[in-house]
Design a protein around this nucleic acid. Structure first.
Length: 481
RNA sequence: GCUGCCAUAGUGUAGUGGCCAAUCAUGUCGGCCUUUCACGCCGACGACUGGGGUUCAAAUCCCCAUGGCAGCACCA
């Protein structure tokens, strides 16, 4: 077999990770509030790339410690999306399974004098914090804190009445660091997986889990820089060694909806057809359009881990995707807005067209010409001579009439006649091509119906994923040109 | 307001004092190939935010300005 020419688009390497030579343990830690989107994919692929590079374990940690932000259906969706991305996940952990661990270690932190139970009003505390002043609760004795903590756990407080704070440095120049919260009470809604009222905040559960799971390196967005500083206090109190962190800059993504709440709302209101609506930036939405996980991975690795804020480039993603799918996508004719033309004077014949130019082994398509064809309206408008690809030249006489104008390809080229796709009249099956700009109605070759869930290239139109066949109509999603 | 981070072509990226009249990818344009406006090949276009300073030498170091971003939640 011909090995085929490997296009040597040398792939870019991520910068090396410090202290990683002996292997790493990294994690991807989504909140199960909805399906994963492009923003998640960056973190997921970046961490995955380093685990693959240095070897080690990759922990999927479901951070479901806020009942308000847990969508029961998201657990399943997240798993599906992880599978789609083909991540090398080795361990799965649900934080909601680890509540007792967090409770125990909170008690320990209190005993170490590293945390106190605060019953101040949130607003009041904020004022004190901004003024670098201690709140009254800060001077509780360890015994008093322990007792208050016990009361928290046994239902002695209602939501909003109490929180546990880490003792940091009230003089810290960054107000974001001063005595942050690590536990709170949530009375409602109920958590879908467990019964609990007292929940750790991420800065606590993350530290505990990163340590207990042996996480060595963390690649996350720069919105966590302040959290990293806060978490350092907890690591220090326990005498634990923090992982190595890297924070990448903000990534803006144009043209799609990413906010879970607006996606939810849009779906409820019928604005979007579902989580895979093409207007959304979810992985399932771009997957439905035929973007391959490998292309997303490549695009994310290309973006790197820089501190600079960047804008996500669909062009670059499409280019990466094209590189992945071009060789495996068979070519077909799709005629948008088909108009029937009678062609006078042309001999009946059969056009043999390769499914993939350059590789005859993939077979030919046979298109029988018997006198009438359908052509894309936009292409014949105003044209005088056009070349029907793989067939012959015609002269457009207007009003659905055309005349045979010879077989000579060279003549067509010299006349600068466009070479267009066509189908025998009555041969094609209906096809709807969904594009971001709207739907394109037309007809395509019947064989396309056998390509459900695969990619094809509609010649001169672009790559598309065949989504399904409904009542004899092919439904396809446009990926890119 | 306070704290911190960042600043290279349309987009992304390489570059940690001389080899940078700045890399690669993508994009756009042109050409070749081709019965696709695809793939492949060739070429062109296109950037160090501004101003000071240090130095024999700065995209690289320092300062200021400007711009962008993040955090200051009992979210993650």
């Amino acid at each position: 077999m011909d090995a085929g020419k490997k296009k040597k688009k040398e792939k870019k390497e991520l910068p090396p990770l410090e202290e990683a030579e002996g292997g790493v343990v990294m994690r991807f830690a989504p909140n199960p509030s909805g399906p994963l989107h492009l923003g998640h994919a960056r973190a997921a692929f970046l961490n995955d790339a380093y685990v693959k590079r240095y070897g080690g374990r990759y922990v999927l940690r479901i951070e479901d410690t806020d009942p308000r932000r847990v969508d029961p259906e998201a657990y399943e969706m997240v798993q599906e999306d992880i599978k789609w991305m083909e991540l090398g996940v080795t361990d799965i952990v649900y934080q909601s399974d680890r509540m007792d661990i967090y409770y125990d270690l909170c008690r320990k932190l209190i005993e170490l004098g590293g945390a106190y139970v605060c019953t101040c009003d949130a607003e009041r505390f904020r004022e004190l914090k901004m003024a670098k002043k201690a709140c009254p609760c800060r001077s509780h004795t360890i015994e008093e804190n322990l007792e208050l903590w016990e009361q928290m756990l046994t239902g002695g407080f209602a939501e909003g009445q109490v929180t546990v704070r880490v003792k940091t440095d009230l003089e810290h120049p960054d107000p974001a660091i001063r005595d942050f919260s690590i536990f709170r009470i949530v009375d409602a809604p109920a958590h879908p997986r467990i019964e609990a009222k007292v929940y750790p905040l991420m800065n606590f559960s993350v530290v505990v889990d990163d340590h207990l799971l042996g996480i060595t390196h963390v690649i996350r967005g720069k919105d966590h820089i302040a959290n990293t500083r806060r978490q350092r206090y907890i690591f220090d109190y326990f005498g634990w060694k923090p992982p190595v962190y890297r924070h990448y800059g903000r990534m803006s993504i144009e043209g799609v909806v990413l906010s879970t709440s607006s996606m939810h709302r849009g779906i409820d209101e019928g604005t979007y057809t579902g989580w895979d609506d093409v207007h959304l930036g979810t992985l399932r939405a771009i997957g439905r359009r035929g973007i391959q996980p490998k292309a997303v991975r490549q695009a994310m690795v290309d973006l790197g881990t820089g501190d600079t804020d960047i804008s996500f480039s669909w062009e670059n993603l499409y280019a990466a995707n094209k590189a992945v799918i071009d060789e495996t996508s068979d070519r077909f004719f799709f005629v948008p807005h088909p108009v029937r033309y009678e062609v006078e004077g042309a001999p009946e014949q059969t056009a043999e067209v390769p499914r993939y130019p350059g590789d005859e082994k993939r077979g030919m398509r046979a298109l029988d010409f018997t006198g009438a064809v359908v052509l894309p309206a936009a292409e014949v408008e105003g044209a005088t001579v056009v070349r029907l690809k793989d067939l012959f030249n015609i002269e457009v006489k207007g009003e659905r009439q055309a005349a045979y104008a010879g077989d000579d390809l060279t003549a067509a080229r010299e006349a600068k006649a466009p070479i267009i796709q066509w189908l025998p009249a009555g041969y094609g099956i209906p096809c709807t091509l969904h594009t971001p700009e709207g739907d394109l109605e037309g007809v395509c070759e019947p064989e396309v119906a056998e390509y459900v869930d695969r990619m094809v290239q509609f010649e001169r139109v672009g790559f598309a994923r065949i989504d399904r066949v409904e009542d004899g109509r092919v439904v396809a999603f446009f990926a890119h040109r």
